[in-house]
Design a binder for these strands. Structure first.
Lengths: 325, 325
DNA sequence: TTGAAAGCGCTAACAG
DNA sequence: CTGTTAGCGCTTTCAA
């Protein structure tokens, strides 16, 4: 039993392939109602399923979007991926997912693969935004950078600096003076902005003698290790650059016999679902994930004439870990 | 600047399209080394990129695999998706990801979309395995069911019953007699197997008077709500059907002022990374996620002549939440 | 309103 | 070893 094609339907309906195409696509030419019914019946009867590959070959669009994240196992990216897929689905698009593992070569290789697949556009969290942008530009493929983005490219991000400032100020408001930070990887643009916000708030408020800061990956273990490095100096509070790290930090605090928030206040960044269920619940700077995803997908489907450079607002979700009731 | 095609390369190399195809695909016909070099140079110079769509149209294979999970935001599925993508990438395949939201209609719609895209195969966690299998069968598309699967279909699962038995027995070994369970959704095959294992262990060991059990979704909140329902009866231990639920349970216990494992022992199922970093760390039945993913991908790429029905072993990872150490 | 036919870019016979 | 050519299944002019 071989594939049912448009020709089979045409034959069964006693009409031409063109007409079948017109009814399947509701255009671009009108079809007499009676003919339409015959075609519809033939489709039903033959079990015809349009071939997206052939369609893409002639039509140009694959109705497919690519998504490249560093690590889908990270809840933030997982939630983001879910949101992107939902937005894409609502727009009848399908999503190709790939992990770059935070590696530049891998990322570029993935991009190459996606380009060969002729995706209509890509949402990317890039480690090599300039190179990626160049590849995409010359392949005339739409893209939206999340986080780090080259000038002139569409990007969607959040106010990392402002969020970090708000988080730190909140801690200062609690009366803490020694506020350490577990930052992201050195060189990461997003991580640096969060660090800058923390530093700005700290120094402008004169809250600390020495700025205890460590670079760590955005992982549970990064948070754990960072905490071990920082806790010796007995900070009163720690700002973690991501929820994953904060959870690692919570575990480290427990291992050291430190009670959060009594012995150590914690505040973090992301606002993933996990942050709400940690013990204690994490006060966190919440990113508008669904909004970012919706905006990204929209931008790929019907791009603004000018590059979009969205910096979305974040909100501080106050829970228990900072010391608030 | 329009797309560079094989014809352009052929022209630049002063040869035919066929030869270009032969060198790009290293076959099926041999090409003289000198010609090959000329073609390679022409490819380089023109910036030619093979068109996967056209390739798929003629060749039959899209080199694309589909993955349908209920909810990518769930860490277990996120880790699984990551593992599937890695395995697929190693095999030069690309992954289309979609969330069914645990809804049958959505799942079937997704499958239809995937079929139109002519994916080579699909890994699916299905809520309607029979219908899904029928669709896939008649579209002659390879598939592997994870978890619930119809008879005669390839499936990969873990020993849910055995894992639950082991977990429960471990709890009994601690001397607990009142061991409650937060199970998965009613009717879920995997969830039922875990329940059966718990029940079997409990009753055969005569460990409990009444079997406190509640059905809950595999979510943080499911675990939280389930815990609130169960904790009133003051069980000595609770077996949660998933890590997500266990984390919700941990939060509920904290809210009730119960210390884990001192006042309440907890054991769970999945073995996601999050379980290791919870406070206290969760004793859990670990699923071999990478192995499942690798097996699934392999099965799609080079299927066994007979349907594969793998039931992988799980391992109990003993940590703090059960009261050990 | 409908049909014939020309491709979309590529692979794989088939023929030199 | 290399070139010619017939499709793959579909959309869309262009004619009728």
């Amino acid at each position: 039993m071989t594939r049912v094609t448009q020709a089979d339907v045409a034959r069964a309906a006693g009409t031409s392939m063109a007409v079948v195409s017109y009814v399947v696509n509701r255009g671009p030419r009108p079809v007499a109602e009676e003919t339409r019914q015959r075609v519809l019946a033939a489709i039903e009867q033959t079990g015809y399923r349009p071939d997206g590959v052939a369609r893409a070959l002639v039509g140009g669009s694959t109705m497919t979007l690519g998504l490249i994240v560093p690590d889908i196992a990270n809840e933030f990216f997982a939630e983001l991926a879910g949101a992107v897929e939902h937005a894409a689905r609502a727009a009848k698009r399908t999503v190709l997912l790939a992990n770059s593992d935070g590696d530049v070569q891998t990322e570029l290789g993935l991009l190459e693969t996606f380009l060969q697949r002729r995706i209509d556009g890509v949402v990317i969290i890039s480690k090599a935004p300039i190179t990626a942008a160049r590849m995409l530009e010359q392949a005339e493929t739409r893209r939206v950078f999340l986080g780090a983005a080259p000038a002139g490219e569409s990007s969607i991000g959040v106010d990392n600096f402002g969020g970090a400032v708000a988080a730190t100020i909140h801690l200062v408001g609690h009366g803490f003076e020694r506020i350490a930070m577990i930052g992201g990887p050195a060189g990461d643009e997003v991580a640096e902005a969060r660090r800058a916000g923390w530093q700005h708030a700290i120094t402008s408020l004169g809250a600390v003698d020495d700025l205890a800061f460590v670079h760590q990956p955005f992982t549970f273990d990064g948070g754990y290790v960072g905490a071990r490095q920082l806790l010796g100096a007995r900070p009163q509070a720690v700002f973690a650059a991501s929820d994953r790290q904060a959870i690692g930090l919570l575990r480290a605090a427990a291992d050291e016999g430190l009670s959060v928030p009594d012995d150590l206040a914690v505040i973090t960044f992301d606002g993933s679902a996990a942050s709400a269920y940690a013990v204690p619940s994490l006060t966190t700077v919440q990113q508008p994930i669904a909004e970012m995803a919706a905006l990204a997908v929209q931008q790929l489907i019907e791009p603004d004439p000018q590059p979009l450079n969205a910096v979305l607002e974040v909100g501080l979700v106050v829970r228990r870990s900072c010391g608030c009731s």
